[in-house]
Every structure is written in structure tokens, then in C-alpha cells.
Design a binder for these strands. Sequence first.
DNA 1: ATCGACATGTAAGTCGTTACATGATTAG
DNA 2: CTAATCATGTAACGACTTACATGTCGAT
Lengths: 178, 178
Amino acid sequence: MARGRQTELAVLGALSVRPMTGYAVREEIRQVLGHFWSESYGQIYPTLAELQRDGFIEAEQGTRPGSSAYALTARGRDRLTDLLRQPHQSTPPRNALMLRLFFGRALGVDACRALLRQAKDEAEQRLAEFQAIRAELATDPDTEHHPYWLLTISAGEHTARAAIAWADESLTALGQLT
Amino acid sequence: MARGRQTELAVLGALSVRPMTGYAVREEIRQVLGHFWSESYGQIYPTLAELQRDGFIEAEQGTRPGSSAYALTARGRDRLTDLLRQPHQSTPPRNALMLRLFFGRALGVDACRALLRQAKDEAEQRLAEFQAIRAELATDPDTEHHPYWLLTISAGEHTARAAIAWADESLTALGQLT
DNA sequence: ATCGACATGTAAGTCGTTACATGATTAG
DNA sequence: CTAATCATGTAACGACTTACATGTCGAT
């Protein structure tokens, strides 16, 4: 499966933006990549220790006791590029909503409609969040990351809009049932 | 987390369509729900044993030795409805493509464009598959599952089309870089 | 002083896949 | 006869989350 590499990649990527503590890595991933990725402390801290042992990151001096920010080393930068180039295998799909709708006959039309309305609400909220992030990014000083971050925001917007359209269509279709 | 329930739900759902062996449950999920859900033998067989122990399913007679098809009991049908009604929590997101594009600066424009082209190809293939399933479903004798199955197919189509549009847009955007 | 945010780390347990062993049945 | 498919089951392993224990720092 080689999925430990994925956490390694996420952590190295976060540190490539700027040096950070483990806590900050988690916050960064949660706030900025939250719709596409997630990591827990139980993954992050062991990974940081491993990366430091292997010389891919180093603790920065000047941090207060009980806390240390890590920065990429030159080898760490190479390692990041390596990992980015490797083919990615997505986790097997597990969409709880689709599983329920597929067996919707046993659930009943009304409950399915409720599920669809909830899905639509969530998609609308996601869309608003992405648009807010986009607006915030527009005011930021231009970093070289900018065009790539826009890519992922755009993906979020497209997906959310598709979900909204699908939910509307499906509510109509189910409405015509009995 | 209560995710063991998810496998239980998938297995009960499959058996609600028609009685099946464990092997067939896996095939059914792989072929029909493959784009939204997956289960492995390591999950299915222990779950079947548990469900039988709890009286939610029973082995049908008349099956050949070394093989047994299971059917839902009345209690099993209730159990399925119960599980369907319970609120679902999706697995935390882990989108390997987005993770890579987000750190695209370290990967380079050309490699990112290659990733996008690949994503577009995959989305087009998925769209074709969904349309094939839709066509096949149209020739089938009408079951009560029909409208619900169409729902999930439609979701797949919407998502695939959104992915294609996003990839096209993004390829253009990245093309204007340097 | 105390509350909330910052910060580190681990143990326990769940979840899930992969790989293998084993054998029956069917189509060519 | 033999290859492919149908079928069952489990052991080993890896990935990941949750919950907890512990402590620092800044603001009120």
C-alpha cells in the first residue's frame, strides 16, 4: 500500500511552505487542505521524528522550550520532489451517502429526500467556504504557490456545484415517485 | 467511529437485493457499487458469520456443498432499515491528486499538467462507464431499486463531468504560466 | 490565578487490505 | 484433463484515530 509515504509527503509539503511546529503542521493541513486531506497527531509526530532521523528536516534554533519548528533541509526538498513524482493510488472509495441511496428502497422515499437535502446544504456550505478562501487568497501577497492553490480551490468549487445540481435533479426525480 | 457498521450495512444491503454467497456479495459490490464503495473478503466473511450468529441472515438450503447463499431474515430487514437511518459520517478526505497539485510548485508546471491530463482521462473513462451502466439498467426488467440506482449513477455522471471541466480549465490556466 | 490557545507525545484499539491456503464446479 | 471461475476462510500486517497525559505561554 505504501501509504505512510502519503503522510510523509503531506508533512514535507507543509514544511516547504514555511518552517513549522508539528502543531502548526496539523492546523495548516486542517484549515487549508481540510477539504482534500487530513492528518492526526498520531501520524504527524512519529513522521516528524522519522524525517529528522533521516536528515530530511532539522529543528530550527530560537524556538522556545517545549516547542520546536522544523525546516526542510536540501535533502528534504529533493525527497519532497521524489515523493510528488511517484504515482499515487487513491484509497478505495467509501461514500456513505451513496451507499445509503443505493439501498434507498429499504429506506423509503422521504428519508432519501431528506438525505439529498442535507447533501445539498453541505455542498452549498462547502461552495461558500471555497469562495471565501479564494477571496482571501486574492488579497494575499503573491507567492509562487498561488496558481497551484487556485487549482485546488477551483476543484472544490466545481465539485460542490456538481453536487448541488445533482441533488436538485434527484429531488425532482424522487418527487415524482408515487 | 462505529465503522464496522458500514460493512454490516453494505452486506445486508446486498443481501436485500437477492440471496447471495459471500463471494457474490463481493462481486456485486465491486461491479455495481465499485465507484462508491468497496469491501474485501477479510471484511465480508467475518461479517457474514456475525450476522448469522445474531439472526439477521440465514443460510439457504439447496446450495451445493462448500458454498452457501444467505438470505435476510425478518429481523435482518429491520436491522438494515435501522442502519440506513443512522447518521453517516464520511471518512476523512484523502485525495492524493489534490495533495500533489497543492504542492505543485515543488513538482513543476509540466508534471502538474501531466497529472491533470491523467485526471481528465480517468474522468472521461468513468463517465463512459456510468453511461454504459445506465444503458444496461434501461433494458433490465423494472425493479423497485431502479430509481435509487439511477440516483447514484447520476451522481457519478455529474461528478465526472465536473472533473473534466475542471481539468480543462486548469490546463488552460497552467498553460499561461511562463 | 485561570482560561484558552499552543505544543508534544503515546497507548490502545479499530479498521481494512493483502496474501495465502484450500477446495469444488464448469466450460473447452 | 485442465484452466478458469466460484467459493471460503484467516493470519499478518499496516494505517489511522481517539483519547489521554503533560506542560508552556499570553491575556484578562
